[in-house]
């Protein structure tokens, strides 16, 4: 999740420290509806996953992205 928070901070254009797994969509000025969709697409590209249409509205907190982030081999 740490890796994802750092990644999300980069996408949203905010300091890493401002984000926790509980940070919610809409709670930051930077995280608006357009940025939300960008975060979805960027997450898919970064983690090589696909987030179904029906699941997008369920992504309210950063922690909700957990099933779609599968950190790459870092050994």
């Amino acid at each position: 999740m740490d890796d994802f928070l750092e990644f999300a901070a980069g996408v949203l254009g905010v300091q890493r420290g401002t984000l926790t797994p509980q940070t919610e969509y809409g709670s930051l000025a930077e995280w608006d509806s357009v940025m939300h969709l960008r975060l979805v697409m960027e997450t898919e590209a970064r983690y090589g996953t696909s987030i179904p249409l029906a699941a997008v509205p369920q992504l309210r907190k950063l922690a909700d992205f957990a099933p779609y982030i599968n950190p790459k081999d870092n050994s």
């Binding site: 357009v34 969709l37 697409m41 249409l53 997008v56």
Partner: peptide
């Protein structure tokens, strides 16, 4: 194309 984005945005 991303048809999801067409619907969502």
């Amino acid at each position: 194309w991303d048809e999801r984005m067409r619907q969502l945005a």
